[in-house]
Amino acid sequence: MKHPARWIALAVAVVALAFVAVLATQVSDDPQREDNESVLLNHPAPEFSVRTLDGTTITQADLAGKEVIVNFWNSWCIPCHEELPALKEFYDAHATDPDFVMLGIVRADSQDAIRAYVDAEGVDWVVAFDPGANATLGFATRGQPETFAINSDGTIVGFKAGPSSRNELETMLAAARVPS
């Protein structure tokens, strides 16, 4: 008589083998690869309503027809400091373009701190607060800095989590300028 332990062992062996095989496929995966993936890529930009430093309200409707770079940031985030020179350089290169808009949306920070930072660092582009957090949630941000590019149709065509370089910003803007 054969002992059932043999059959059970065989079954367990098959399951264990399959399990190890699945794990093996995951080993080589690069855990950092999600940096430039957003579920929102190639989707319409979400509805949002933010308030600029001087108190005007900007909604996604106001940006229709423009090529937009949206940068989520705040004053206490060190990677945001790191990307500031690239942002400045990039903004200065395109500031005269009438169809270009760059919007820095503040993620979780106090008014005082932001005003002080903007004055001290000479941030020239539009900086806006997100009191209802509807932009923060609408763009499904997971941290700061995060940068999105929106084309004139209002579609999100570029995304970068973490500090962007000048080149990355240019690439995103170029994507936003491709006529659809």
């Binding site: 993620r107 979780a108 957090a133 923060t136 949630l137 941000t141 997971r142």
Partner: peptide, 11 residues
């Protein structure tokens, strides 16, 4: 207690 989490709870 992260700010985004509080915003999501409100949402």
């Amino acid at each position: 207690l992260a700010p985004t989490s509080r915003a999501i709870v409100r949402d």
